[in-house]
Design a protein around this nucleic acid. Structure first.
Lengths: 147, 147
DNA sequence: GTTAATGCAAAGCATTTGCACACGT
DNA sequence: ACGTGTGCAAATGCTTTGCATTAAC
């Protein structure tokens, strides 16, 4: 898949830039975790990512995966998404998009329907919040669970 | 507050109905937890609710608060809302509405802007999910944290 | 050479579970 | 009386922290 490679390359560049700008080191662990996340679209949890990464980088610790993910979120290379279970899920795609989650199996998928984008993000709310971003969470039942 | 009282009364009725329909018992604990939740708009976590309820019903256990909340969610009297921290937050308002969360203090507020309602909820997604509901999560900075 | 990042082990919360007792119907 | 709900205590699961070691700039 050419576009996957391109995506990974872009992400890696994004990481390099983010590290440089924030005085962070470009470690193998950061590279590998981002790489593992970039190649999947199932919004894995930190633990799922740890399992994926263990095979590639012997000796990487779970703690490091957690720390790396928070760092990546911090520099905006990765997005932490809200979900109705308690454990956090992550997404390498930081372009604004939305999610559907299956209420049966908790699977999360992307929604790319551009009709769903809010025309104008109000800059301020009634309560006086300055708005930065938004995301829409749809809930439903996935094809597998329906049958 | 007259409208708070009315809201609580409605919620209580909702609970009674839900219990009757599902063969569940109307226990003091269920009543008290719902009552405590109905009177606040800050989307408390299970633990915050436990603290609130402890004063009113001596001896209620944390476990019970957790269990009662899941029951209330199950019968649709209460809504569990997603948030970027790991702990779940609850909301007695089950009318469709959206939330803003402050990225600094993690406070969550409601958004009632009707312009934000999606005109039509697509019934099915590209991935084949049957859609049930949606909610928009805005992120921003609250007035307190801005100053 | 410095400073920051990692690995390990242990701690920390939030939440869940098993089981005996109490309560609602 | 029956069956469900509750309280307690312990277990679980995810995530974080302290500290010595290692690696990046």
């Amino acid at each position: 898949m050419d576009c996957l490679l391109a995506f990974k390359t872009e992400k890696l560049r994004h990481l390099e830039e983010g590290c440089r700008q924030n005085g962070l080191a470009m470690t193998v662990q950061r590279r590998v975790v981002l790489d593992a996340l970039a190649e999947r679209t199932d919004h894995p949890s930190a633990d799922q990512l740890y399992d994926a990464v263990r095979g590639r980088l012997r000796g990487i610790s779970r703690t490091t995966v957690y720390r790396v993910l928070e760092t990546l979120v911090g520099i905006g290379v990765v997005q932490k998404i809200s979900n109705p279970e308690s454990k956090a899920r992550y997404d390498a795609n930081t372009v604004r998009h939305h999610h559907v989650h299956c209420i049966r199996c908790q699977r999360i998928e992307d929604m790319h329907n551009s009709a769903l984008h809010l025309a104008q993000l109000p800059t301020e709310t009634e309560a006086g919040f300055t708005l930065i971003d938004y995301s829409i969470n749809f809930s439903g039942i996935c094809p597998d669970c329906r049958s």
